[in-house]
Amino acid sequence: MNDVLTFLQAYGGVLSLLGSLAVLLLSTKFVTREAHAAALGERDGRIKALADKFDVLDDRVFRVESEIKHLPDKDTAHRMEMAISRLEGRLETMDERLKPVASMASRMQDFMIEQGARAA
């Protein structure tokens, strides 16, 4: 025990100085309360901004999903495409059937014009 006391008496000042330097060095390495509070405030602000942005995006996704619900699915689109192609075929058939009627109407118009010219 005497050895420890003798050591502390001889080197106590140096040890105290080294301890103070260690505390000073460590105080520059760790964050202060004010800096920590500022960092927490900044983090909370960023979290709030991200939460607001998330809410806006959530609303947009909801609107897009509600609009997409009304669109036809793949099978419905395919059935519509097939129905349109059948209608095109029917229209082409009808066009072929109406060509003689159109030529007959043209001949009737020519005949009526000739009749009108003779009468005048």
Rank of each mutant, 00 (worst) to 15 (best):
E92R: 10
T6P: 00
S106D: 14
E34N: 09
I113P: 01
A77L: 12
A119D: 14
M80H: 05
V31C: 14
K48H: 02
R86D: 08
H36I: 10
A37F: 02
A120S: 15
T6G: 03
A119R: 11
N2K: 15
G116A: 09
E96T: 11
T32R: 04
A51F: 07
P100V: 00
E42H: 09
G13R: 04
I113R: 10
A39V: 07
S20C: 10
N2G: 15
Y11I: 02
V56D: 04
L5P: 03
G19M: 13
D73F: 00
K99L: 05
T32S: 08
R118C: 07
L26S: 01
L26M: 02
A51C: 13
V56E: 04
K74D: 12
E65A: 08
R79F: 03
V14F: 06
V56P: 00
E88R: 13
E114L: 15
D52G: 06
A51V: 10
M112H: 08
D44K: 11
K53C: 02
A39N: 09
G13A: 09
A119K: 11
S106Q: 11
L87R: 11
L57T: 09
I68M: 12
H70Y: 15
S103I: 07
V23D: 01
M112W: 06
Q115L: 14
L91V: 03
T76N: 05
R46H: 11
D95L: 04
L40Q: 10
E42K: 10
E81W: 06
A77M: 09
K48T: 06
D73K: 01
L91Q: 01
L21H: 00
T76W: 03
G12P: 00
S27F: 02
L17R: 12
M112Q: 12
E42Y: 05
R46I: 12
F30V: 00
L15Y: 03
R63Q: 11
I113F: 05
S106G: 15
S27G: 01
R60N: 07
M80E: 06
G13S: 12
D110L: 13
G89H: 02
M108T: 09
A117Y: 13
V56F: 02
D75A: 09
A83I: 01
D95R: 08
F30C: 00
H36N: 15
E92T: 11
F62S: 15
I47N: 05
Q9T: 14
K53M: 03
E67Q: 15
R97M: 02
V56M: 03
D3Q: 10
S27Q: 06
F7C: 07
A102V: 13
H70M: 13
L40Y: 04
L5K: 11
M112C: 09
V4R: 08
S103E: 14
A117C: 15
A105I: 03
L57A: 13
P100H: 01
A51N: 12
D75I: 05
T93F: 03
L98R: 12
D75T: 09
R90F: 10
V14Y: 07
